[in-house]
Design a binder for these strands. Structure first.
Lengths: 206, 206
DNA sequence: ATTATCTATAGATCTATAGATAATGC
DNA sequence: ATTATCTATAGATCTATAGATAATGC
């Protein structure tokens, strides 16, 4: 019971940290602000996460579990283009989470940032997984003419870049539609039909 | 003479601010660190820029002049795809500047960030200028099938997104090559030849 | 007068440590 | 014993204001 309580508390704290980081970035986030949101004193929070950096690491590990933890996600299938299109649609409904990780990604390029290695390692793996998915689907050359590896770099770039434009000006940027546009460039005309056939779904996109 | 001295000093301070922001972001940058780099006391610096925010605004205004100030840049021609390809190549040689603005863009999505409006306004205009350039070149539909407006959103996303991947792991990402890949997707095969003909240059890309 | 700088410092914060108190689990 | 929290506080910073000093420009 105590253990369960404790886990609950930690989860509450992580959720609060997500929110505060979205509002102010990691450097701007204060332990006091996170604690207040949970209804703890700042020192009470430090009982669960002994340092500010430990809290950030926990936030990042949590994300890692989410992204790669699900059964279907393991082994390269998580970053299939059609699943990504759904992910983008899902993300467009939770600006808070997108804002947290966009703020962290932006900060992570500065020196000695505790999230830097996380993002670096993660992108190596995400690009590799995407390339594998694209290769499985299209072989060595996509309809648009790129190799899977070269397409993967652009895919990650589009995903991240769209988030910034969308966060800054949600009404000016239709993030899911833009991502679908990009997929069509990569996959050539008829991509929507191909995806629908594979999933056994009817209906068209766009 | 006093005026000239003063302008020089301000320029020195702006250059130092660029560097410190690249290292630590705006929130992490301290006036003391900027001042030290110029060889001034923190209070001496405040003589030139009365607040930290005033210093940031000056950095951003400086960038605005750079981007849109040149004669050829005015009126929409600055964001032509072929010029962008050169800009990306140029940027790949100055990671410091790229890092400054990538860090600022990342921070700008957090609440009440003093650069938020700058980036929001800027992106509206950049997208519009790009769309105008693409329309002038291709008309209502690009070879890849997108309208100029829809292509512009993706182009900005690719530019920003590639910078993060490249800053985190320069040896893993060939930023200029990736951007050329994207242009070929947009413009279809033969884009390199088309650009070369327009510029009266020989030679191929890629 | 104005400009360029400096010393001193007020007033806010922030992280993290120390040590106490109360409740829970063997 | 261990867990969950709290009060108190040390030790660092940070921004910005106040006021002094020296040099430059009319």
């Amino acid at each position: 019971m105590a253990r369960a309580r404790s886990e609950e508390r930690r989860a509450e704290i992580l959720a609060a940290a997500l929110t505060v980081i979205a509002e102010r970035g990691y450097r701007g986030a204060t332990l006091g602000a996170v604690a207040e949101r949970v209804g703890l004193s700042q020192q009470g929070l430090l009982h669960y996460f002994p340092t500010k950096e430990a809290l950030l690491v926990a936030v990042l590990e949590d994300r890692d579990r989410w992204d790669t933890g699900g059964g279907a996600a393991r082994g390269g299938g998580a970053w299939r283009p059609d699943l990504l299109a759904s992910l983008v649609e899902y993300n467009a409904m939770r600006p808070g989470v997108v804002q947290t990780f966009s703020a962290l990604l932006g900060e992570s390029v500065t020196e000695d940032h505790p999230a830097r290695e996380f993002f670096t390692t993660r992108y190596v793996q995400v690009r590799a997984d995407m390339a594998a998915s694209l290769r499985a689907e299209y072989g060595e050359v996509l309809p648009g003419g790129l190799t899977p590896e070269r397409a993967a770099v652009l895919m990650v770039a589009v995903l991240d870049g769209l988030q910034y434009q969308w966060l800054l000006d949600p009404s000016a940027v239709d993030m899911p539609a833009a991502f679908r546009d990009f997929l069509e460039l990569l996959e050539g005309p008829g991509a929507a039909g191909r995806a629908a056939r594979r999933d056994g779904e009817a209906g068209t996109r766009d």
